[in-house]
Write a protein that binds this DNA or RNA. Structure first.
Length: 308
RNA sequence: CGCGGGGUGGUGAAAUGGUAUCAUUUAGGGCCCAUAACCCUGAGUUUCAGGUUCGAAUCCUGACCCCGCAA
């Protein structure tokens, strides 16, 4: 059976790794061409391409939907698996005869769109899941083959959630593969329950200190490593890598949101719209990541200034 | 050659040509019912290779490494 795997994300990479472990052989991987990346603008193959090379899976580098159409037309694969591919596949391509299966890291119809994992963490969901569905021309809209739930613990971070969901997604696909050949039952999504997620930008990670510490702390977990949660101190970029919420008692001093205090155990505490955010790990522009305790050993004078 | 910051005790930072300093750490001692608190004493550092200089962490050249932005 010919299976093509199309993805451009780390999630896709992890799913394909899981499939490899489950002895599912992919006929071809479709991913974006090498991009200029990092300092120095060196061209670097995307992780999924490297994965393909390592495991002797043919790669097709595709960066537009016309080229994608041609590849699908030529290959005549039985199944095309798509996991956060980044291009919207038109009906013309979907009706070429291959079965298009999407692995989406949320419990559809909740969290359609590009950032389901981040959104569920920001919303404080206790559980999420992964959905296997047939694709149609609308985004994350097709009939559902099956779903798996994944429990999110209290302090789950993006990368951990992504890994859990990718593994569960790989398992789910592996399990359903035998019946995908035949006529498969699939349940249409309940349209009235659909919610959508938005694309994140670098700006999404800019912290608004008027928000509550609870929300900011969730964003710290959801948005790292990208776009990262950042703020400015003395005109320099400061990334918040790890944080906690500290409840504010009534007799605690209360200042403008963004103001820095010395917290318990020599950590950095920031006044937010509601309660304090305890910064545990941070990174100043041009510097290595440090714990806030270490950071304060040489930067104690920062206490009292305000983040913006 | 996309733009930029940086490399100083184990860790985080000062010192911009003249005795390398501070915090933390660590060893020992003191105080105390007790302590991660407080006091005293000690330990430990300029990434590497050249160059300029009476003298370099500091200025110049080269190498290696780390990081922010942008993509």
């Amino acid at each position: 059976m010919k299976i093509i795997f199309a993805s451009n994300s780390n999630f896709g990479l992890m799913v394909s790794e899981k499939l490899l472990k489950s002895k599912i052989s992919l006929t071809k991987i479709i991913t974006f061409p090498d991009k200029k990346i990092g300092r120095g603008q060196k061209k670097e193959p995307l992780p999924l391409k490297k994965f393909g090379i390592r495991n002797n899976i043919p790669i097709e580098e595709v960066d537009n939907i016309i080229h994608f159409h041609d590849v699908i037309e030529k290959e005549k694969a039985d199944i095309v698996v798509v996991a956060s591919f980044g291009l919207i596949i038109p009906k013309k391509t979907l009706s070429l005869g291959s079965k298009f299966i999407n692995i989406h890291p949320s419990l559809l119809p909740k969290y359609r769109g590009p950032t389901p994992i981040q959104t569920s963490i920001v919303n404080g969901d206790q559980k999420s899941g992964v959905t296997l569905l047939f694709m149609d021309e609308k985004i994350d809209h097709g009939p559902i083959i099956d779903q798996r739930k994944v429990i999110f613990h209290q302090k789950i971070k993006y990368e951990e959630a992504e890994k859990l969901l990718a593994q569960e997604g790989g398992d789910l696909f592996t399990e359903k593969l035998p019946i995908l050949k035949e006529k498969t039952n699939a349940t249409p999504q309940r349209e009235e329950e659909a919610t959508y997620t938005n694309l994140l930008t670098k700006r999404s990670g800019l912290i608004n200190w008027n928000e509550s510490a609870k929300i900011i702390e969730r964003k710290v977990r959801a948005y790292n490593p990208w776009p990262g949660t950042h703020t400015k101190v003395n005109c320099k970029n400061l990334k918040i890598l790890e944080a906690d919420v500290q409840l504010q008692t009534e007799n605690c001093p209360s200042g403008v949101p963004g103001k820095l205090y010395l917290g318990t155990n020599n950590t950095l505490a920031v006044q937010t719209g509601k309660n304090f955010l305890l910064i545990k790990k941070l990174q100043l522009e041009g510097k290595n990541p440090t714990t806030s305790k270490e950071f304060l050993q040489g930067n104690i004078s920062i206490i009292g200034s305000t983040l913006s």
